[in-house]
Design a protein around this nucleic acid. Structure first.
Lengths: 327, 327
DNA sequence: CTGAAAGCGCTAACAC
DNA sequence: GTGTTAGCGCTTTCAG
């Protein structure tokens, strides 16, 4: 039915070893290669990745573990990861772990059996202990042991930039609004950078952190915002939180950028939201994806040491901050 | 280094066949199983999917071919597909074809070599010819030959429902705004259903179709909308198009639902857009994903015939249509 | 430069 | 019930 290498060898009147060499681009006599190529074409031969994988212990497959692909930030990230991998001839296993440590572990188990050549993960739990040290692991936004590489945006600087942008626009009562996850993560750096940015200019910075998973978001936000009418500059932990804050603020009768100013974080291209321009600190998702794949390839192909990559963020001036007057 | 079945057999003092049986849940004496399980635990043994796949010709992997994961409709769909597959112990290859027929073909080639057990595809080109007839294929929103299953929302009925909803809300000059793709697809049914819906009530229906890929969308829309001030009820081919139309309309000084009413199509959960409630015909994405996986499983496991599944749509009453007065 | 042959780790048919 | 064994299709020595 399906042609095997043996069939090709027979038709081309060579040994299977030679066919293998042709497939793998090892040097053979031109004449021989031609014969083989022709036989391959004639039989419509396709090498069996599984037989090859069994022998070589490689699969040309990378697993991507995400909280959920169903979120613009992650789906954009996944898009670029897949694009870059596919260019290198790698396939991608998609794993939605739902932010569930159990599931993250299960997936790691699962993909290890499937001989993945590496894992790129945006994970919550401390999973580095589950991936054997010889399996390349690139973590996004989380720093594990020395064994794993990580790629992250410069969240601390992002926080600082936000503070500076607000202060430049004459805010004097800053507030960070975010959540506290049971697992430490990079959003803490956003907060810390923001606080630092305020401090440097001698401006007060309040922190409003809600415990995650957040219950009744608006119910928590509204009393807080009502009782702090002095707040005139906000950094939200991410864009969605910013939108939530704005919604509640609107209910209180305060509108950005007139009554207060607000900056989000992430900068996902909210294609559904073109009307609405949130000022935000943009993470360069495409670059992060590229860096992840590049790091992964370096680890796989060149056996390189794990690396630490920090990519820069930028301030996108939307319509929720005032236009900065040029002097 | 890594334990193999042979090691387990040796430690448990049984034959490899027995270990295999235990792994695969074939009946063995309780006592024996126990010994084997213990050896497995002790050696931290993990079966090698590649060796197994080589033997069985199955991989427990499904490929999902999409235009791009970077679009809320597809990412939500992918989320549910992955979730359902994972429950059945299947893995997912993610393939972004970018709506490019060449890439779609390449991916099919690629995943065939990787022994995928089936393909779920939202594709543009006529690719059924490239997938061998014995490889289960479930197509979303596109009907190929008898060899392939398909799952689709009831787009025709959706079009009719939109027409009815608008007419019930006293629109008398309907218009469908969409695009013409070089490849036939289900959006044509939306248009046809809409036209039919108008016809049934004796209401005029205009069609404004732009050739895809659409260049200068707004530049095309504005003159058309300006020159047709009589239009008071619009069905857009999808939610994004609806948002674009609303943007242009706003510029002309017309606002929904006061000056006209508009309905979108898809109903992706625009989490970023909570302020903004577009009336729309909702495709039940989760159900479509479930149906796809279920159909796939039926084809793989029970060798069932291809199926045709049409899932119902529903009208979501947002704020871009008037509230229907109850009599 | 190329053919022959030994497995990679597993499953399944066959014996016991 | 369980051990033994023959491959699955390929890569990779090892000779020649």
């Amino acid at each position: 039915m399906k042609a095997t290498m043996k069939d090709v060898a027979a038709l081309a009147e060579v040994g299977v070893g030679t066919v293998s060499r042709v497939i793998n681009g090892v040097k053979v006599k031109d004449k021989t290669r031609e014969k083989v190529m022709q036989a391959i074409a004639e039989l419509n031969y396709e090498p069996d990745e599984y037989a090859r994988g069994l022998k070589t212990n490689r699969s040309n497959t990378i697993a991507l573990i995400l909280p959920t692909i169903w979120h613009p930030f992650f789906s954009e990230f996944a898009y670029y990861v897949e694009e870059n991998l596919s260019k290198k001839g790698y396939k991608l296993f998609l794993c939605n772990a739902d932010g569930n440590p159990e599931k993250e572990k299960e997936y790691i188990q699962m993909v290890k059996q499937s001989k993945v050549d590496g894992i790129i993960g945006i994970t919550y739990s401390d999973i580095d202990q589950y991936v054997s040290s010889n399996l390349p692991f690139v973590s996004i936004d989380r720093h594990f042991s020395e064994q794993v590489s990580y790629v992250t945006a410069d969240n601390y600087l992002g926080g600082q930039m936000a503070a500076k942008a607000l202060i430049d626009r004459e805010c004097r009562h800053l507030c960070y609004i975010g959540g506290i996850s049971p697992y430490p993560n990079e959003t803490n750096n956003r907060k810390a950078g923001f606080a630092k940015g305020g401090e440097e200019s001698g401006v007060e910075v309040q922190i409003f952190d809600m415990k995650e998973p957040i219950q009744d978001l608006e119910g928590q936000l509204e009393p807080f915002l009502r009782s702090h009418p002095e707040i005139d500059g906000i950094l939200a932990v991410n864009d969605f939180m910013a939108l939530d804050v704005m919604k509640v603020m609107k209910r209180i009768g305060r509108n950005a950028p007139y009554d207060y100013q607000i900056i989000g974080f992430d900068g996902v291209k909210l294609s559904s939201d073109r009307e609405y321009l949130l000022s935000t600190i943009v993470q360069p998702i495409e670059e992060m994806a590229k860096a992840s794949v590049k790091t992964m390839m370096a680890m796989i192909l060149n056996q390189e040491e794990p690396r630490r990559v920090v990519v820069p963020v930028s301030f996108f001036e939307g319509k929720t901050t005032k236009v900065l007057k040029k002097d």
